[in-house]
Amino acid sequence: MSGRRPMPDVYREDELDRLIRWALYSLVINARPSPAAWHNVRRQLPLSSPGAAIREKRDPSGWQRSARGVWSWTASALTYVFDQEWDERFTKQRNARRWRDYLALAMLSSITMMAMC
């Protein structure tokens, strides 16, 4: 059923309500997303399951693990060199230990940063 009415009286609460509802419905009536929207969503989803997708974010990937392994080994080797060689060479020097501490700290920082990647 349809019929023409005069301009609604917006001072009346019910008329204002109807006017707002009518304007909003007319704005979205027959509005539908295009089929391409779903394809875009589908295309952007990770290939693995949602749980796995979240776990992927938490767990390091293969290359991250490899990088950490290499850095860990390098750090161990360098620490050994410092302990064995540099200590012997600079035992008599006053600043030897301080230098070693600085270098060890720098290495630890690097390793931590790599681990955070």
């Binding site: 059923m1 349809s2 023409r4 009415r5 301009m7 006017l19």
Partner: peptide
């Protein structure tokens, strides 16, 4: 636009 007596249709 609303003060010139426009009408609207209910459906």
């Amino acid at each position: 636009r609303l003060s010139i007596g426009v009408a609207y249709e209910w459906s």
